[in-house]
């Protein structure tokens, strides 16, 4: 039975459980919601400078652990990101503006919001999934640029 399930799905589930455990740790020990865009955004626009040390420590772990783990476990890991600078810049701007307007991204609204049945988290997730799906149709299948 297990053998018929693609490996990627199993690793997805295992990694997902790790992500959820990290969010649980941050909530129960530090009393904070683990939202990647909020943790970084609060540093960028100074709204979270009162808790700057904690935010910087979180981001340090988020950057450092994959930096050590990726070469040790997989040798070389690639994000396979687009080679088109215009696409990358447009995407980054949209993600930066959008997550701050919506006050959350996949981790904050998706993982932390849905798990507490937050209407805002569920609505946000529906709309960013919808926009992501439409973007794939338009920019991949119609325009063929991604």
């Amino acid at each position: 039975m297990i053998g018929t399930i693609p490996q990627d799905w199993i690793w997805g589930l295992v990694g997902g459980l790790m992500i959820g455990s990290a969010a649980a740790l941050y909530l129960l020990v530090n009393g904070r919601i683990m939202g990647a865009s909020g943790i970084l955004g609060g540093l960028v626009d100074r709204s979270g400078w009162a808790t700057a040390a904690e935010r910087i420590a979180f981001i340090a772990g988020l950057v450092a652990v994959p930096a050590v783990m990726a070469p040790l476990v997989w040798g070389h890991v690639s994000t396979n990101i687009s080679q088109n600078p215009a696409v990358i810049v447009a995407a980054g701007l949209l993600v930066g503006i959008g997550t701050r307007l919506a006050n959350g991204c996949t981790s904050g609204h998706g993982v932390c919001g849905i798990s507490r049945f937050s209407l805002r988290g569920i609505v946000a997730t529906v709309f960013y999934l919808l926009a992501g799906g439409i973007t794939m149709v338009v920019f991949r299948h119609v325009l063929g640029v991604i």
């Binding site: 950057v63 994000t79 993600v95």
Partner: peptide
């Protein structure tokens, strides 16, 4: 703002395939 922001975020997420968490986690590689 929740709706407009999520729509903009979703567009960027689709265009590049990155959201804020993985964007930071992949800084080294």
């Amino acid at each position: 703002n929740l709706v407009v922001g999520s729509l903009l975020f979703g567009m960027g997420w689709g265009l590049a395939g990155l959201c804020p968490g993985p964007a930071m986690a992949s800084l080294s590689f």
